[in-house]
């Protein structure tokens, strides 16, 4: 009964006190706490200043003093030249195909690594080394892998596939294992209680739970990989990047513009379609 005691109505009384100008102590944070925000801004500013000359940031003025170059560049871009569109389109499709295989291989090999790096499935002595290995795959950019694979397997799209594959195994295994670590353990226990083995626990208890998220992540990575694959051609790993690079190097800005437009349109279409699909999955 006494839990229903009415709350004392003190607020108006307190306000009246303020009206009579009785000085009230305004609480203040300690000095160190108050200096925290200015200090953070100071550090950010110092880092920017420190990075100014090494990155030749003073050249920002060149954007305006060399405006003629910019104008030439820009005017050519406004008149895209689609004469070679058949080549651009086949190369764009090759780029997408590189992304398809890169993603597919990354998923196939990423799944076991994801399971092995999930701390709710595997013991720490397996999880930690596998995670570090995956960190290494992820830490190195696909361009670097592409350079290595161009040396190893020669110029062409296959080097691009391999580069995307290795880099994405690291990413997929991390994304997938995070999904695995968030599962509901009870269905897995229900299956274990029937006398199944560990692999069957994963197949029937874990995988059905994470399939929607895994599919969504796969589509997302495919989108990203199409974007990455357009760059891989620049270093000779096949696809539209090569065409793009060649037209820039030969100052054919109208052709460059056409290629860029094709890339942008393709990426947009793929993003829209995959976003639709992902929406259906989750």
């Amino acid at each position: 009964m006494n839990s229903n005691r009415p709350i004392a109505v003190t607020a108006p009384a307190a306000l009246r006190d303020a009206g009579t100008e009785t000085p009230v102590d305004i609480p203040q944070h300690p000095l160190s706490r108050r200096l925290r925000v200015p200090f953070i801004w100071l550090v950010v500013g110092a880092i920017l200043v420190w990075s100014w000359s090494p990155t030749e940031m003073w050249k920002v003025a060149n954007l305006f003093t060399d405006w003629r170059n910019m104008a030439e560049f820009g005017s050519a871009f406004l008149r895209p030249n689609f004469r070679g569109w058949e080549l651009y389109l086949t190369e764009m499709i090759v780029t997408i195909q590189i992304a398809v295989w890169g993603t597919a291989l990354a998923v196939v090999f990423g799944i076991p690594f994801a399971i092995l790096s999930s701390s709710n499935i595997c013991p720490q002595w397996i999880v930690q080394p596998v995670r570090r290995l995956m960190d290494a795959c992820r830490a190195i950019n696909e361009i670097v892998f592409a350079l290595l694979f161009v040396v190893a397997v020669g110029l062409g799209p296959f080097a691009g596939v391999m580069a995307l594959f290795i880099h994405n195994v690291g990413i997929i295994s991390k994304l997938f294992s995070e999904a695995v670590e968030a599962i509901d353990p009870r269905p897995v226990e229900g299956i274990r209680a029937t006398g199944s083995n560990k692999l069957q626990d994963v197949i029937f208890g874990v995988v059905p739970q994470v399939i929607p998220l895994w599919s969504s992540y796969t589509l997302y990575r495919f989108e990203t990989n199409v974007r990455s694959a357009t760059v891989l051609g620049i270093i000779g790993a096949g696809g539209i990047g090569q065409t793009l690079y060649e037209s820039i190097r030969s100052f054919q800005y109208s052709e460059t513009a056409a290629v860029v437009i094709i890339i942008v349109l393709s990426v947009m279409i793929i993003d829209i379609v995959s976003a639709r699909l992902r929406h259906m999955l989750v």
Partner: peptide, 18 residues
């Protein structure tokens, strides 16, 4: 042995997507 012992749980523990 687990194969001979059936367990029924409070939260059923079915795999909901199957």
């Amino acid at each position: 042995l687990r194969a001979r012992v059936g367990v029924v749980f409070q939260q059923f523990n079915l795999v909901s997507r199957l």
